[in-house]
Computed example of a mutant assay.
Amino acid sequence: MPSNVEIKAKVSDPEEFAKMAVQLSQSEGTIIRQHDTFFNCSRGRLKLRDFMNGSGQLIFYERPDTDGPKLSRYSISPTSDPPGLKVVLSDALGVKGEVRKERRLFLIGQTRVHLDTVEGLGHFMELEVVMRPQQSVDEGQQVAVELMEQLSVSEDHLVTGAYMDLILQGQ
């Protein structure tokens, strides 16, 4: 199963964060609109990501709910019928909740840097260090920590869990 090292943090100044990400990535980033539906499942998280353009992805992932860099294992299957798949999964498993966001994606080395505006929650950043074959978790965590420093992400802004968890907690 593919894996990455992830961190998530609250962003108080999205414009400033974007400036730093543009400088480090040497790009303006790519805007992606996403509507994620989370389904009930016995372990991990299962979500259907609808890109609102007729395409989507069914994503299963497992990661600990801790702040700081953490290993996430995932599997992804593309779909050309997100609404139809949502009906089937909703009927079979039940819906846990939904997250709507606009994501600005920057690529910095082996890391996907997301600047997210999440409906009902505000602004966040995510780092996803895509693990290379034979790369240790410690090496991936070190990449994440160094990038946190370059992007001026302080540890007191780190967030545990998924956006869905924050929404369910009423934050």
Rank of each mutant, 00 (worst) to 15 (best):
G97I: 00
L58C: 02
L58A: 12
C41I: 14
Q150D: 13
E15W: 03
G140S: 13
G140V: 05
G97H: 09
F124H: 13
D13R: 10
Y163C: 06
S25V: 05
P2D: 15
Y74P: 00
E28Y: 00
I31L: 13
L147I: 06
P69R: 10
Q142W: 10
T37G: 00
L107Y: 03
Q171C: 03
L105P: 03
Q23T: 08
M148S: 10
L46A: 05
R63G: 00
D156P: 07
R103C: 03
G44K: 09
T160W: 03
G29W: 02
V153K: 12
I167P: 01
E98S: 11
R112Q: 14
I7P: 01
D65E: 12
L121R: 09
V153P: 13
G44Y: 09
R100C: 03
R112C: 10
R73G: 00
P78S: 12
E126L: 05
T79W: 01
M125T: 15
M20P: 00
G97E: 05
E6V: 08
N40Q: 13
I76M: 09
M1D: 02
S90E: 12
S90A: 14
A144W: 11
Y163R: 03
E15Q: 14
P69V: 08
S80F: 05
G94V: 05
E126R: 11
D13Y: 08
V87P: 00
T117C: 07
L151W: 13
L93R: 12
Q142K: 14
D67L: 04
L71H: 04
V22R: 15
G44W: 11
L151P: 11
P69A: 15
V159G: 08
V99L: 10
Q135M: 13
M52C: 14
G120S: 07
H157L: 06
S77D: 01
H35M: 08
R49G: 01
V118Y: 10
G68T: 04
Q134Y: 07
I31F: 06
Q169D: 14
K10S: 05
F38P: 00
G84L: 05
Q150G: 02
D156K: 14
G68K: 04
V99N: 07
S152G: 01
G68D: 07
Q26R: 15
N4E: 06
I76E: 10
